[in-house]
Amino acid sequence: MTAIAFGTWRKPSVIPGFGLTFGFLMVYLSLIVLIPIALLILRTTQLSWAEYWAIASNGRVVAALRLSFGAALIAAGINTLFGIIVAWVLVRYEFPGRRLVDAIVDLPFALPTAVAGIALTAIFAKNGWVGQYIEPLGIKVAYTSIGVVIALTFIGLPFVVRTLQPVIMEIERETEEAAATLGASRHQAIFRVVLPTLVPALLTGFVLALARGIGEYGSVVFIAGNLPYRTEIAPLLIVIRLTEFDYNGATAIATIMLAISFVMFLAINLIQVWARRRFGYV
């Protein structure tokens, strides 16, 4: 039996082509993704801990990481709040233009980030579409950290909406009916019955938007103004270090960001494990 040859690693199958496709998959994945990332991480081991710490605790680096993280956190919060309304409206209500709104939700996935970046700047710059009305009121958006938040809100919205939509669709109307028959008001049914079941999906969408926001570059650099210590995001600082040929600096910041991505990824998986136990869905 072939089962012996493969041990228990793979179940035998009559379909040919496993060796070819699996081999190609592993080679391509290793060459394009795994080896380059591993070498990036390996490169930081050329630095001593003291050197690494000196780069990581540098004021400009800390400020950039704090801005990237903080702005992404606020943007993900805004997206979670509005994302749940958008997802709910798209699933539950019928209104003219619903399908158009549904299609447009994916725009940030399809629109190149540089295009989004210059468009948002055209809107919020001092003489821009909105900027000319709000700057006299003392609200500066472009070239401030508010601009960063706006760009990250644009980028992150589909993550929340697209995570929530299928889950809202799966909610069984019976539970809402049961709540109503037992005397719950609609308000109570929504906030005590429906919303709690959406918590894992909300958290997943939040973390996805957050992770994307921390790493985002294209849409932010145009509107941010890129002042060191103030409106300079972490990915931009990597680019700056590279143009200075400071590979060690760039690599060290990159590994910090990779570590943050990894924590986010773990968080999503833990949320899903918890959701499967608690609510029986992913």
């Binding site: 380059p36 590979y247 690599t251």
Partner: peptide, 22 residues
């Protein structure tokens, strides 16, 4: 692992090749 590139910042995606081939 196949999904990994989605969770990596695009700037890092460029950086890894600079570290390899720069």
């Amino acid at each position: 692992l196949i999904d990994l590139p989605f969770s990596v910042s695009p700037v890092i995606a460029g950086l890894i090749y600079v570290i390899m081939f720069g």
